[in-house]
Nucleic acid binder design. Structure first.
Length: 583
RNA sequence: CGGGACGUAGCUCAGCCUGGUAGAGCACUUGGUUUGGGACCAAGACGUCGCAGGUUCAAAUCCUGUCGUCCCGACCA
């Protein structure tokens, strides 16, 4: 390929609307251009890399027994109503109308479609297990698209769905995908690691996310270096002990706390109640019903855990400033800052408490009377707790739940997600099969996603330096960039460049020849910005000494005799390729 | 949807506070000189200053609205 015959619009300056380095490099290296917020056109170099990532995914999915299909992006809303997600996923569903005014949805994911297919086609245990996958454009009405391809309205995803006859079979399918994902990311040159994950709206029981460590990631991962425990903060737990019991009086005692509406204020003089001896009472509206959630004063509620434990779909804090929520606080008799669950909790309201409060006594909490608190409160004796759950957010430095070493937290980009779904969708969409004994059962499902376009950007986020992208060989748009410093048609640099290009191409190497009549500095800067793994410099000065320069993107220049250049590049290529073989 | 910032040439931005002539650098065109790390000189082309109202003799500049972009939050399969 000649550079002049493709389209690589590099930018010298950083576009002002790109915040993170991978987004800036996507634009500067001419991989993509923005059409509008969250929508991008892939240009030749970006598209070549995208295709390479797709190909790696295909090879590994096929190796793991996946069967490639292609489902419609445009879907009937009926199947979404049937699964119940027409409402629960409403926030991200793009809806369109046809000329007859009938509504359709643009698929944000394909559980409904594949399960409908399975319902009609998979009828016998003899047909199981099956794992269907596709690589396809997804549409999600993101509230706030950002960071280029990281969170877009339209993006490329690999989604796979497994159907098994038994729970054990489903776990085996899950394990095969988990292993395939490790191989896929390794082959992309990406350091991604699996973490335990929350299952979210999609539902299910067992889940891991594949995370790429990056400060610009949108997820917090809790991890232990000693035992390799790792979990999304939405799911993570720690090995902290429950609150220590104390001697306590016969009943709670009310005391005046005028103007005190925060944990901090109550911790100071003259009250001096440490945060870990306070009960934080939160009022939430969960699926339109008010509930009380209790956590210790020094803890933060983890809303994801709350939703996962209770199955609530729409959860928000009640807002004292919101007129619609006014009656909630009126029913309790106090405003935030003086709330508690000891007395005056309306009948029928559910009270959820964090497990760390179990057995706690001599606690202080709001009296449900503005300006008053209660002390000497015993959780079990004084509060009617509906259910106890782990509801707190893990903090840095807490003991690991597995080995008691210190937990750390870091930011990461989610590039893949594996779920064991169970029978949620197969039951709702009637994807049942007949077992050997003639009984009918819903198939046990799993679903497995990789954000293909996000993975591309994650590679850039992880593999770059001050000069630009440093592509891992397997996903580079071209593997070698041949750079003649003079492009006079019959001159030695250009003649040798063509010859070398032909030889390397014949050896199966993807070559781009920078035939532009530009000064050397421009060519060097551009090739480094775009990030080709190896550049071969053909300049009159070194050619006069009988030498050609090999400049790996991530290493020092090596001078080789002209006659040996082709063999040297092929040797480099083989060695580099070997680095990315998945284990 | 809340909070903040910003919309001026293809890109990066100045000008706005204090109203009166539309600017710089890069990119682009032509000519010349250059040619191993984003060249130099000269000439040239490129704008309804996001859009719509309003104030004013006069608006890129002040006011109102609107659309868009980016950031923080909420949300997120």
């Amino acid at each position: 390929m000649l550079w002049s015959q493709t389209f690589i619009p590099t930018l010298k300056e950083t576009p002002s609307d790109a915040e993170i380095v991978s987004h800036q490099l996507l634009l500067r290296a001419g991989l993509v251009r923005k059409l509008t917020g969250g929508l991008y056109t892939f240009l030749p170099m970006g598209l070549r890399t995208l295709r390479k990532i797709e190909q790696i995914i295909r090879e590994e999915m096929n190796r793991a027994g996946g069967i490639e299909v292609l489902m419609p992006a445009l879907q009937p809303p009926e199947i979404w109503q049937q699964s119940g997600r027409y409402e629960t996923a409403a926030g991200v569903l793009f809806k369109v109308r046809d000329s007859a005014k009938k509504e359709w949805v643009l698929g944000p994911t394909h559980e409904e479609v594949i399960t409908t297919l399975a319902a009609s086609e998979l009828n016998s245990y003899r047909q199981l297990p099956r794992n269907f996958y596709q690589i396809q454009t997804k549409f999600r009405d993101e509230i706030r698209p950002r960071f280029g391809l990281m969170r877009a309205k339209e993006f490329l995803m690999k989604d796979a769905y497994s159907f098994d006859a038994s729970d054990e079979g489903a776990m085996a399918s899950y394990g095969r995908m988990y292993d395939a994902y490790r191989r896929i990311f390794a082959r992309c040159g990406l350091q991604a690691f699996p973490v335990e994950a929350d299952t979210g709206v999609i539902g299910g029981s067992h889940s891991h996310e594949f995370m790429v460590p990056a400060e610009t990631g949108e997820n917090d991962v809790v991890y232990c270096e000693a035992c390799h425990y790792a979990a999304n903060i939405e799911k993570a737990t720690s090995g902290l002990p429950a609150t220590a019991p104390r001697e306590v009086g016969p009943e709670p005692e009310k005391f005046a706390t005028p103007g005190v509406v925060t944990i901090e204020a109550l911790a100071k003089a003259p009250y001096g109640v440490p945060a870990n001896r306070q009960i934080k009472t939160l009022v939430y509206v969960a699926d339109s019903r008010p509930v009380l959630i209790l956590v210790r004063g020094d803890d933060q509620l983890n809303e994801s855990k709350f939703m996962a434990r209770t199955g609530a779909v729409a959860v928000r804090p009640a807002d004292a400033k919101n007129a619609a929520d006014a009656e909630i606080f009126a029913a309790l008799g106090a405003l935030p800052g003086s709330l508690g669950a000891v007395r005056n909790v309306p009948a029928g309201w559910k009270v959820y408490a964090d497990a760390r409060l179990r057995g706690a006594n001599d606690m202080t909490t709001g009296a449900n009377e503005d300006g008053f608190h209660l002390k000497g409160v015993s959780m079990e004796r004084d509060i009617k707790v509906t259910e106890w759950f782990d509801l707190r957010t893990v903090k840095v430095g807490e003991p690991c739940p597995k080995c008691a070493q210190t937990l750390k937290i870091r930011r990461a980009i989610e590039v893949g997600h594996v779920f064991k779904l169970g029978t949620k969708y197969s039951e709702k969409l009637n994807a049942t099969f007949l077992a050997e004994d003639g009984s009918r059962h819903p198939a046990v499902m799993g679903c497995y996603g990789i954000g293909v376009t996000r993975t591309l950007q994650a590679v850039i986020e992880q593999c770059h330096d001050k000069d630009g992208i440093v592509w891992p060989l397997p996903v580079a748009p071209f593997q070698v960039c041949i750079t003649p410093l003079s492009v006079v048609p019959d001159g030695q640099p250009m003649t040798l460049a063509r010859q070398l290009s032909d030889e390397l191409t014949a050896a199966g190497i993807e070559v781009i020849l920078d035939d532009r009549d530009e000064r050397p500095g421009v060519k060097f800067k551009d090739s480094e910005l775009v990030g080709f793994p190896l550049r071969v410099n053909l300049g009159e000065k070194s050619l006069a000494k009988g030498e050609i320069e090999l400049k790996p993107r991530n290493g020092p220049v090596k001078l080789v005799p002209i006659a040996a250049a082709s063999a040297e590049v092929i040797a480099w290529f083989q060695a580099e390729k070997a680095k990315y073989q998945a284990a």
